[in-house]
């Protein structure tokens, strides 16, 4: 975009920055800043239940699980768990499968995310206009969001079945292939299959969020754009996209985190096979747990957290100047 943005207003919202920037502040400012015992009590009382639950049932187990990463912790001998420092990490990085798994994880995230985003965006754009039965259409098209990843995996495993699968049958009928492809038996086609399933599942999330964001763009902005004689495409890129840019960026971030942490579909469809060729980090972690290599599984978990935190930090830094430019 070379043109100057038509919009000056920016939706306030941010991820890391604390919750100020509420529109229409002013009257509340002075009150918000004064700290009295009563306010302290309310903060504590309102926040305590959430803090307790998350602390006891999330952080405590995570921290005590994390220390297994630095011990030898194996099913074959759980009595003797000496500290081994970074040995488990070394084992992971020197594993011959590590390269494949790392690459797969990147492919899984990128190849799932991009089509989800594009189709989701298109769907949202085209659903923004009212038409008859739009409500019904939304209800019908958005439902994959409500299904569990595991179940979606099972559903697609059945459809991609090499012998009785409906996808082969349709492709043969259409004339695209002569005989059935054993989808889940070949690393490349298996990866295609799991990604297709994930795209099918994830489009909805983008569509809903983007549709919601689009509907929040004030009508007067479009009117202004129209008065300026902007074309539809230009309106889209000069008005709409900048206005919802922050939402888009944060949605993408959230999806990256979720997709990476989402072993369910792969686990149900291929279990990481054939020959470990469709494993991503999280499915590998499940395999390690099932084999009784708890130390390694825990180390993998820490690696995932580290990658995601570094990624999020860089990502947030990267989208920040962008925002300033718009605003």
């Amino acid at each position: 975009m070379v043109q100057k943005p038509l919009v000056r207003r920016r939706r306030p919202s941010s991820l890391a920055a604390s919750s100020d920037g509420v529109p229409g502040e002013g009257s509340g400012v002075s009150r918000r800043r004064t700290f009295t015992a009563r306010r302290g009590f309310i903060i504590l009382a309102f926040f305590l239940p959430a803090a307790l639950f998350v602390g006891v049932f999330t952080y405590y187990p995570i921290v005590s699980g994390a220390q297994m990463a630095f011990r030898r912790w194996q099913l074959s001998n759980l009595i003797d768990n000496p500290w081994v420092g970074f040995h488990n990490f070394v084992t992971i990085f020197t594993d011959p499968s590590f390269g494949t798994i790392a690459l797969n994880t990147v492919i899984w995230v990128v190849a799932s995310l991009v089509p989800q985003f594009i189709i989701g965006f298109a769907l949202a754009l085209w659903l923004r206009r009212r038409f008859r039965f739009r409500g019904l259409y939304q209800a019908l098209v958005f439902f994959p969001w409500a299904i569990s990843g595991f179940l979606i995996g099972i559903l697609f495993r059945w459809m991609f079945n090499g012998e009785f699968g409906v996808i082969n049958d349709i492709l043969i009928k259409v004339g695209l292939i002569d005989k059935g492809i054993p989808w889940l038996a070949d690393p490349t086609t298996a990866m295609v299959a799991v990604i297709v399933a994930n795209v099918w599942y994830g489009v909805t999330f983008f569509a809903i969020i983007i549709l919601a964001a689009l509907q929040s763009v004030p009508e007067e902005l479009f009117e202004a754009a129209a008065l300026d004689g902007a074309s539809r495409t230009r309106t889209l890129f000069a008005v709409t996209v900048p206005y919802i840019a922050t939402t888009l960026a944060l949605t993408v971030l959230l999806r990256v985190i979720w997709i990476l942490n989402f072993p369910d579909i792969i686990w149900a469809m291929t279990g990481g096979g054939p020959a470990n060729q469709t494993h991503i980090v999280t499915t590998w972690m499940i395999t390690m747990t099932q084999n009784g290599n708890y130390g390694i599984a825990s180390a993998l978990g820490l690696i995932i957290v580290a990658i995601l935190m570094v990624f999020s930090a860089f990502y947030l830094l990267a989208i920040r100047p962008n925002k300033r430019q718009i605003g």
Binding site: L15, V54, T58, Y59, Y60, P61, I62, S64, G65, A66, M68, L254, I257, W258, N261, P263, T282, M285, I286, T289, Y294, A297, S298, G301, L302, I304, V305, L308, M309, S312
Partner: peptide
């Protein structure tokens, strides 16, 4: 702290 919980694979906490 709340956001980070979204990044942690549940598997790490299962045993504890």
């Amino acid at each position: 702290a709340f956001l980070v919980t979204q990044m942690i694979p549940a598997f790490i906490a299962l045993g504890p």
